[in-house]
Design a protein around this nucleic acid. Structure first.
Lengths: 233, 233
DNA sequence: TTCCTATTGTCTCACTTCGTAACAATAATA
DNA sequence: TATTATTGTTACGAAGTGAGACAATAGGAA
């Protein structure tokens, strides 16, 4: 693959995406592994000269993961000097077979605008274990060491996700269209990192008037079958 | 004043500050007027190559307003293409007496990281009406038309300020060290844009255990004198 | 001095919300 | 038919909130 050219992208500006998915019990994140280096990083990219920042992030998501029409939320911009480590970028590019001049634009300092994405289990076809060769799902609590300040970015993303849990449609974007109350509760518990009371949670959710009740889901277990719910538009 | 040189600053990256102050009843914002153009804008600036983003904003605040040690909070980064209007920047620079090449770096597209600042009435010496020749306080609801997307930036800042009102020390940073309960209530009302019940507000604030009660303040009026309060550290 | 007025601090009462526990309903199996 | 695990609902006390009432009081008026 050819290197991105300075002619196409704004210098000094990058973006990184913290892509959250939910699989059964745990909150997961998509992590990239750069080949031949053993380096792990958040999927990111650069902004084209004639491209909105938000659209650049959407495009980056599509290019790297094939995912389109994903819920995205900007949460913070990271611009500390310590995050400038040109030797890391050089290693990655060289391991990928590129010869780099010392004054190459990708070796300059970048300020990174960070977004989090929420992936609906529908779209990943309940297989959040591998999307491509170099992209993998990792439990939020069991991340490998990431390059630069990417571990900090993930922590911050989680903080904002928790903050937004009660004011933005988080659950809606992490679950399939229809889900049980228990699944919704597990999403909330995974995000908050604490157990919640079943009865209080159910009462509170139903009281919000944002859920529609559908048919029951019979799962072959020897007990009462739960109702399915969906978010009303 | 000499133009900032590209050698000193990161290209394509700017910051803008929404500086909130509180004067008696109203929430105010510091607005810059560019001389000879009649253009109004938020005070902003650029990031030096070896400078943290947060520190650049602090420096910009100090340079433009003389204010040091101010509460700052990053809230959003604006990167739409529509905000790129080189002719505006060219007008401002030319009106200031600079001859500009067509490929001057300040005429390129910028992505702007926006911060809001909270100014304690102590520091402005209860005179939030004029700080310098080209900086003035304006009521949040009565802003002039600002350049680029700066009116949108202000609206967004206010939204985040409202969001943070209950989880960050907003009142502490907009009021002098000692204040009455009524003054604190007026700050909250100005930020939220709605009246609040006096008794509920007082009960809620006292219940938070973050206020310390001091002596009364006698203001010469023919009624009971209110206690002064301060935030506990 | 005494009364009056505007404001402040507190209390009460009804209503809602939440944690907690108990209870009823039920899908499949033994 | 009885059993079991899970789900949906209800009951009850604790805590918080809106709304109003009431007491306290600093200075001015009579």
């Amino acid at each position: 693959m050819a290197l991105p050219s300075e002619k196409n992208y704004l210098s000094h500006i990058a973006f990184d995406s913290v892509i959250f998915g939910f699989s059964g019990q745990k909150l997961k994140i998509l992590i990239m592994e750069y080949h031949n280096t053993g380096l792990y990083a958040l999927p990111g990219g650069f902004v084209m000269h004639n491209e909105d920042l938000d659209l650049a992030v959407q495009r980056g998501l599509l290019e790297r993961t094939g995912l389109d029409n994903i819920y995205l939320e900007q949460f913070h911009t990271f611009g500390n000097v310590e995050r400038y480590k040109p030797e890391v970028m050089r290693n990655i590019l060289q391991a990928d077979g590129h010869a780099i001049d010392n004054d190459h634009w990708m070796l300059e300092r970048f300020i990174s605008v960070a977004y989090y994405a929420l992936i609906n289990s529908d779209k990943v076809e309940t297989r959040p274990d591998q999307i491509s060769d170099s992209l993998g799902w990792y439990n939020v609590e069991e991340l490998p060491e990431l390059i630069l300040d990417h571990n900090t970015i993930v922590k911050t993303a989680l903080k904002y996700l928790q903050l937004n849990l009660s004011i933005k449609p988080i659950g809606k974007n992490l679950l399939p269209n229809k889900f049980t109350m228990k699944e919704l509760q597990q999403v909330h518990e995974a995000i908050l990192g604490t157990p919640l009371r079943r009865t209080s949670f159910q009462r509170r959710m139903l009281g919000l008037d944002i859920l529609e009740r559908h048919e029951k889901r019979f799962n072959g277990k020897a007990h009462k079958a739960p109702y399915l719910y969906s978010f009303v538009e």
